[in-house]
Amino acid sequence: MSVLLTGQLVAAVLFGVGLYGALSQTNLVMIMMGVELMLGAAMLNVVFFWRYLHPEMYSGQMFMLVLMTVMAVEMAVGFGVATARFRAKGSVEMEEAGELRG
């Protein structure tokens, strides 16, 4: 089996695991872990596409750096919200955050 296809299959399973985590967990930090896994799967796809389809074009690596930025921003914003929530309610359980619903 091709290395590119193997990478894509790993990324697909990793994305599924991350989606399961993001949907099933009630704790904000655990939800963020699910999102991290999904972003990791996206990064894996980007790197493998760059490597096995167009290694001469560096915009693929650039896209990977943008994804890393998204990951860092997601973590920062998530922990900011978690800290504010913990200060206000003493917990980061999203089951108890019904008032955040729009």
């Binding site: 590119l4 296809l5 894509q8 299959l9 399973v13 599924g16 009630t26």
Partner: peptide
């Protein structure tokens, strides 16, 4: 610390299978 486990499991598995089927069907060496 979990909720809607069955729905999440189905969503995760279906999404992974969808991506796998697209990757396999569209793959050209």
């Amino acid at each position: 610390m979990t909720h809607q486990k069955r729905f999440s499991l189905v969503a995760g598995v279906v999404t992974a299978l969808l991506i796998v089927s697209v990757a396999v069907s569209q793959f050209r060496e």
